[in-house]
């Protein structure tokens, strides 16, 4: 079963535990500024929204890379950047429609979510289950269940 990150913004409190965990796993230190998942605070609306790469099948970043530095990890479906090959041209950052692949000026390479090799630490750290790592073919199951519970009106 392939799994994917599933985000439910309604459950997010904006604590940034996901950003801490991501940077710790990927960069070896707690440093939200280097996190590959970002939480956005829409202050006036009272909403917090975590956002990261959704691992497109036909990944624009992968298609655009002129040196084939971005490859599919068949084990978990993530599109991973091979730092040894990446030349830091940033074409992928232009190609990605969602902005979830970014340049890291301190290494001269691009960075994106790689699902931590199959055990994403953001989901692990999230205290409210706003970020979960679940069956990629059924990310809508909980939402379906919630709506399904409202369709039986026999008791009404």
């Amino acid at each position: 079963m392939q799994k994917s990150l599933h985000i439910d913004p309604a459950k997010c409190t904006g604590c940034l535990q996901c950003e801490s965990a991501c940077s710790l796993e990927q960069e070896g230190m707690i440093n939200p500024s280097k996190s590959r998942i970002k939480v956005f605070n829409f202050h006036d609306e009272g909403r917090f929204v975590p956002y990261t790469c959704t691992q497109c099948d036909e990944a624009w970043c992968m298609q655009a890379c002129p040196v084939d530095a971005i490859t599919l990890n068949p084990a978990n479906g993530s599109k991973d950047v091979n730092e040894d090959i990446c030349v830091g041209c940033k074409v992928c950052t232009i190609a990605c429609p969602f902005g979830t692949i970014n340049y890291n000026s301190s290494t001269g390479k691009v960075v994106k979510c790689n699902l931590c090799g199959g055990d994403p630490q953001c989901a692990e750290a999230c205290p409210t289950d706003a970020i979960t790592f679940i069956d990629a073919d059924a990310t809508g199951l909980d939402k379906m269940r919630a709506w399904a519970s409202r369709t039986d009106n026999t008791g009404a």
Binding site: T13, C15, L16, Q17, S20, G46, R47, F48, P127, T128
Partner: peptide, 18 residues
């Protein structure tokens, strides 16, 4: 509207209101 957390807080007692 919702509850909000400070940095790294897993309690999230903060109130976001209108």
């Amino acid at each position: 509207t919702t509850n909000g957390a400070c940095y790294a807080c897993t309690i999230a007692c903060g109130r976001i209101s209108t």
